[in-house]
Design a protein around this nucleic acid. Structure first.
Lengths: 191, 191
DNA sequence: GAGGCAACCAAGCGCTTGCTTGGGTGAACC
DNA sequence: GGTTCACCCAAGCAAGCGCTTGGTTGCCTC
């Protein structure tokens, strides 16, 4: 279900993975190309043999997260037997990305996407349309069936914010399992 | 109930208000001291007559938001007649700060606090303790009374994330009133 | 009306930033 | 075995950054 976003076999992907890690730790602005180069064992100038600009690195990371999440959510929804399972899938995919192997890249998507120039922000947003469309469809059905009480558009934003925020406080190694966290989020929005 | 965070009579407060506006628009890192100076009609060097450093500006803004929110929430809780009103107060204070006159400064607090050096981050976090303590007390009571189903600590984080995220999508001038938004958030967490 | 001081300007310093340049090296290919 | 090409280094450039400096202005005070 969940493929790794970066292939450790290729040099460029190793660069992207390291960049995601640093961007998450220090933020995009505070991470210099010299930091990145040191992390992968290169001179700072050598990065630009693999990549056109620092912005390009950020963009490539975010693009992979978006396409990955969209693909995985579509698969999870198709495999879900009933409505409640589909609602759980919305939450599970997002939290799995936020706290699984793709945690660094996903956190960067949620908290540093404003660092991109505006035209590239718009490009990414277009890529997210399909993803949010799936959310809206499930939540609209859920309200029609009486499973939730809040308007789908508003509930989608509330829930998305609640899940995104977990990257600031939730620790996968702690007491609360990821499964429990998913269930708690589901319980919160069910009437 | 809600005092203005910045006094337009004093030059320093006008600087802070303008800074909050720019920081929110472009982010702290992308806002230069020359941008700030132009916004208030000064030369860039003249800013440092009012302020020790660019970091100081950010810190001063965030500090005011924190003390203001803590004060207003305490007052709102004291005035609330019952438990449900206290729960609504938690949400109302946060959304009012996020979308009222203090919207710029509050958005900066929620989305750019990581731009500060770590020791000053810690200083701010200590200032937030009292605020979150009030949240925990209300949500713990709510669960004991059977009004909610999720553990107080987890629910607090979920709700805080959901509300913080509204600054990315909610438009106070649009169809949905702030009162309805508050009610929707309350409905979401009530069983 | 002299002294003091808050507020500001004009100029620029020192540093860091993202990125470029010219050249070197080893493996692959014909 | 000569050529090509992906990959990388060493060095540094141009621009933008936060911030400092020395000096001017005008108001307030006694």
């Amino acid at each position: 279900m969940e493929h790794a976003l970066f292939d450790p076999e290729t040099a460029k992907d190793r660069l992207l993975a390291a960049a995601a890690r640093l961007f998450r730790q220090k933020g995009f602005a505070k991470t210099t190309v010299r930091d990145l180069a040191a992390e992968v064992g290169l001179q700072s100038g050598s990065l630009f043999h693999h990549v056109r600009s620092k912005d390009d690195i950020l963009f490539a990371i975010l693009e992979r997260v978006i396409t990955g999440m969209t693909r995985d959510l579509a698969a999870a929804l198709a495999a879900a037997p009933d409505l409640r399972s589909r609602m759980r899938a919305l939450i599970a995919v997002e939290l799995t990305y936020l706290h699984g192997p793709a945690a660094d890249a996903t956190a960067v998507l949620f908290h540093d996407w404003r660092a991109l120039p505006e035209d590239r922000q718009a490009q990414l947003l277009r890529g997210r349309d399909a993803y949010f469309e799936m959310w809206s469809a499930v939540l609209t059905e859920a309200r029609a069936e009486g499973l939730t009480r809040v308007e789908p558009m508003i509930l989608r934003q509330f829930l998305h914010g609640a899940l995104a925020w977990t990257s600031f406080w939730y620790q996968p190694a702690g007491e609360v399992t990821l499964d429990k966290l998913i269930d708690d989020a589901l319980v919160m929005i069910l009437r």
